[in-house]
């Protein structure tokens, strides 16, 4: 029978069952084994991800109509329509990076400013109301943001400038930015809070204003945490699916046509935020919603795209954590 160890301030006496030494050792061993098995499961998951993604991607590259060189360097992604299929991943990567870039344009400055405000300026009561609101924002499912982008942000943008298409990268980017805001904010705020008081007091003591203290002392001291927060939120934005599937459109941009007319046109066609673009995740959604026949090259191509996505987020997460652990300045 279990009871809370502490009830109304006094300790309830323990009731360890006394077994023979042998039985006890056996029982402890069994428990430890099952816990180790639990732990192994998460390692198995990682291995399964690697095996599934890269195994199927390998099968994709072994197909006659596909080459690894075209996949890595090609500027045309056209697996479903047309007589000639093209598997060059850059149009999808470009879509993903464009959405991520626009999202970060909003999330990083706003998130950092909110974090500085919460950590350095806000009164305790303001903090107590703003933090739960940010938590609510963090808990909203991404499909809701996608709906918001499609029905509110896009019409809003169109009323400002009518060059925006119904599906456009800018509105998806704003929605992803709102989604990332709480992540940037709460992780950066943790980093700012970890800077000890003595640093602030020292700066105040030599005549710094509050602005000097926050921007020239506290932010640099917490920089590693802020960079890590940004990297983690970039990883989230890169892997975001439902928002871009709803609001960014389902046509991969043809970069080749743009670059054929010259480098400037090519770059402009790649970064135009008013038009639609397909991201890596949106392509996977399109395939798994049944636009492709099973086990053709276009079906397997989604595994190759998923492998590329996995590598991107993996690198971002690892670097983010490395920075957080290694460059964390320890203050005593």
């Amino acid at each position: 029978m279990t009871t809370l160890p502490i009830q109304s301030g006094h300790i309830v006496g323990p009731n360890w069952r006394i077994r023979s030494k042998h039985a006890r050792r056996l029982w402890e061993g069994g428990v430890l084994t099952s816990l180790v098995l639990c732990g192994t499961f998460s390692i198995l998951t990682t291995m399964a991800i690697v095996v599934v993604l890269f195994g199927e991607a390998r099968r994709f590259f072994l197909m006659p109509e596909v080459t690894l060189a075209e996949f890595l360097f090609g500027l045309e992604w056209n697996p479903l329509l047309g007589a000639e299929k093209h598997f060059g991943i850059w149009p999808l990567v470009c879509g993903t990076l464009l959405v991520t870039g626009i999202a970060m344009l909003f999330a990083l400055p706003l998130g950092l400013m909110t974090a500085i405000y919460l950590s350095e300026y806000a009164h305790r009561s303001v903090r107590a109301t703003l933090k739960p609101i940010l938590e609510v924002l963090a808990g909203i499912p991404t499909v809701v943001y996608g709906f918001f982008a499609l029905t509110i942000i896009t019409p809003g943008l169109q009323s400002i400038y009518d060059g925006f298409e119904v599906y456009n990268v800018f509105s998806a980017g704003i929605a992803v930015g709102i989604m990332c805001l709480p992540i940037v904010c709460s992780l950066s705020e943790d980093a700012l809070q970890a800077v000890p008081r003595s640093l602030r007091e020292g700066a105040h003591g030599v005549g710094a204003t509050k602005f000097d203290v926050s921007v020239k002392v506290v932010v640099p001291a917490a920089l590693s945490g802020i960079v890590a927060a940004s990297l983690l939120s970039i990883a989230r934005a890169v892997g975001e699916t439902m928002i871009v599937a709803l609001a960014a459109g389902n046509m991969a941009r043809n970069l080749k046509a743009g670059f054929d007319q010259g480098a400037v046109t090519g770059v402009l066609s790649a970064i135009d935020p008013t038009e639609s673009a397909q991201t890596m995740t949106a392509y996977m959604v399109q395939i798994f919603l049944g636009d492709a026949s099973n086990f053709g090259p276009e079906y397997l191509s989604s595994y190759a795209v998923a492998a590329a996505l996995f590598i991107m987020t993996f690198i971002l997460t690892v670097i983010g954590h490395r920075i957080r652990v290694r460059f964390r300045e320890v203050y005593e």
């Binding site: 998460s42 993604l53 699916t241 987020t313 993996f314």
Partner: peptide, 24 residues
């Protein structure tokens, strides 16, 4: 290693899990 593995799993995009679930 297990701890690092878990932090990495937390960063994997959820659609990748979907593909894993579909295959496995």
């Amino acid at each position: 290693f297990l701890q690092l593995n878990i932090t990495n799993l937390a960063g994997v995009p959820s659609i990748v899990y979907g593909i894993l679930g579909l295959t496995v």
